[in-house]
């Protein structure tokens, strides 16, 4: 089973990754090989087998909702490329 270049472009767009033409061709080939290998799972009978998404038997770990110290605004912003008036600055999200 092989992926098409269009499928590779679609996945890259979902993941918001800019890829060069060479990368697209390379990932098309490599992802196809990996998925081809992974297809051996289809031969396993999993009728009535539940999915394991976590190995833990813990469920709904709750705690009291109490205020506690947290990062200051200054510290929280300390790694950002662009800030303004104590906020992260980003380009306009909504189009006119």
């Amino acid at each position: 089973m092989g992926l098409t270049i269009q499928e590779v472009e679609h996945i890259a767009e979902l993941a918001k990754l800019q890829l060069t033409e060479e990368e697209k061709a390379l990932y098309r080939e490599q992802l196809s090989a990996i998925l081809d290998y992974a297809n051996k799972l289809q031969s396993v009978d999993t009728t009535d087998i539940p999915q394991t998404s976590t190995v833990l038997s813990l469920a709904n770990v709750m705690r009291e909702d109490e205020p506690a110290p947290s990062l200051s605004q200054e510290v929280a912003l300390s790694n950002a490329s662009k800030t303004e008036d104590g906020f992260f600055r980003v380009p306009a999200v909504l189009e006119e």
């Binding site: 992974a38 799972l41 289809q42 396993v44 999993t46 087998i49 539940p50 999915q51 394991t52 998404s53």
Partner: peptide
């Protein structure tokens, strides 16, 4: 499918 085989 992977999650189910993980159980096995």
């Amino acid at each position: 499918k992977a999650g189910q085989v993980r159980t096995l």
